[in-house]
């Protein structure tokens, strides 16, 4: 279980996270939604311990960092390193010696090519494969569906559900509402640096409707399209 208590993060005068509190239980998929710049990625970086923060993050499974698979929006790849070498590196960093790496290449990536030459979607798939091979207990997936082809999107959704069945904790953000409603047990709306009350499956239709109203009706007219 992960307990986030009154998490705060500011960049200068910009208070990005202003008291985020939540309890995340294993075997569940949690969706985080919020506008661009609302602090989702900052929250993920705080959970991963890459950013300093105020407040508390408690994890009862040991050191969270060592059990965490982190997929960032734009995964970073060193130049001149092949996909296969990246996977091996990521596994070795967690002291895991995976068997049949080539057979476990579920996205059929050209692993003998330099990772830097991959397309955006391929890079995301490579980074996702790496954290899956690491056998983590907790997964943070920041926009896992972005830039990825339809077939892979379906596969990623299935992977998330499989991880849930394996009693893992999954936290994901997405701007595609259907991907969240298909996979998440609860959704948190991150607004003004705080989480809303958790929104449960039966409330998703209402949530989507209210988000559409706020985004479309209130703002479209401002554009003054002609």
């Amino acid at each position: 279980m992960i307990k986030i208590l009154n998490l705060k993060k500011e960049f200068g005068e910009n208070q990005v996270l202003n008291g985020v509190t939540a309890t995340l239980v294993e075997g569940n998929v949690y969706g985080i939604v919020g506008e661009n710049g609302s602090g989702k990625t900052t929250l993920f970086r705080c959970l991963a311990g890459i950013e300093n923060y105020k407040g508390e993050i408690e994890y009862d499974g040991g050191m969270l960092k060592n059990e965490l698979g982190l997929l960032l929006t734009e995964p970073f790849f060193m130049t001149k390193i092949t996909g296969l070498e990246y996977l091996k590196f990521m596994c070795q960093a967690r002291s895991i010696d995976p068997d049949n790496l080539l057979e476990r290449n579920v996205f059929d990536l050209p692993l003998n090519r330099y990772a830097e030459t991959y397309s955006t979607g391929m890079k995301k798939k490579l980074a996702l494969t790496a954290i899956l091979l690491q056998e983590n207990s907790v997964f943070i997936l920041d926009e896992p569906f972005n830039g990825v082809d339809i077939q892979s999107n379906i596969l990623i959704s299935e992977i998330i559900l499989k991880l849930k069945a394996l009693n893992k904790t999954i936290i994901l953000s997405s701007h595609i509402f259907s991907t969240l409603s298909d996979t998440c047990d609860q959704i948190f709306l991150l607004k003004k640096g705080k989480f809303s009350n958790p929104i449960l499956k039966h409330e998703y239709v209402e949530l989507e409707k209210s988000m559409k109203e706020e985004t479309v009706l209130k703002r479209l007219d401002k554009l003054g399209l002609k």
Binding site: M78, T79, I81, F89, Q92, N112, R113, Y114, E116
Partner: peptide, 24 residues
């Protein structure tokens, strides 16, 4: 340009510094 054919290196997979460094 980015070579699509990876330059072979005589090291194992880690440390990455040597695989990357040798290719550069």
């Amino acid at each position: 340009s980015n070579y699509t054919f990876p330059i072979p290196r005589p090291f194992s997979e880690f440390p990455f510094e040597f695989s990357v460094g040798l290719r550069k």
